[in-house]
């Protein structure tokens, strides 16, 4: 079969798939283990973010190689691509982009459905845990590799009783890919 040509086609192309429940359960086991190891939810949130970051810096190339995405001209496009193509490709669901700040540097990614949290009920002892915090890290890591420094965090979490999952995405700085030419200075 010819390789998919449009970005959105990829998710429907024949890729290797893994049972969704195995994925969900594996993630659950990781979070449980982190809770056991670190005991404090704040620390677990941080660890999940770091793990996600390490995934993101690798995953970005996979994303670029397989989605046929070219350079985004502005941050708004970037957010759309993450929501519509990125999430679809790796999580199987797409997100909605909304709540743009006036200067266009901050927005929300809203997920109505989140396979990571399918069977999860947070016990009272885990209040304060952002169960899916790994996603924030992935986005942050991926964007950093294409020269965007961002801050990514959950502001709404269905596991905490909110009506959706909302990830706040804030562009801090765009680092231009400049080479240090001016060696005479």
């Amino acid at each position: 079969m010819a390789p998919p040509t449009r970005a959105g086609d990829y998710p429907f192309a024949p890729v290797d798939r893994v049972n969704a429940e195995l994925f969900t359960l594996t993630y659950g086991a990781i979070v449980r283990q982190l809770l056991t190891d670190f005991e404090e939810v704040e620390e677990v949130n941080k660890q999940l973010d770091t793990m996600g970051y390490n995934i993101g810096v690798r995953l970005i190339d996979d994303f670029l190689a397989k989605s046929n995405i070219t350079r985004c001209s502005e941050f708004k496009d970037t957010a759309e691509v993450i929501a519509k193509v990125g999430f679809k490709m790796f999580l199987g669901v797409s997100a909605t982009v909304s709540n743009w700040s006036a200067d266009g540097s901050e927005c929300s990614l809203i997920l109505d459905d989140n396979p990571l949290a399918d069977f999860v009920e947070l016990p009272d002892t885990c209040q304060g845990l952002f169960y899916c915090n790994i996603l924030c890290g992935v986005i942050r890591g991926a964007l950093e590799m294409v020269s965007m420094r961002t801050e990514v965090k959950f502001v709404k979490d269905m596991l905490r009783g909110d009506d959706a999952f909302e990830i706040r995405l804030k562009l801090l700085e765009q680092v231009a890919e400049e080479y240090p030419y001016k060696d005479d200075e």
Binding site: V57, R58, D61, D62, A65
Partner: peptide
Amino acid sequence: LRLIYELYTDYVLKNPFYEV
């Protein structure tokens, strides 16, 4: 070259023991 890039993302970057 694009195919080689795909191989790189698959067999190098996804190898957890490869240091970026």
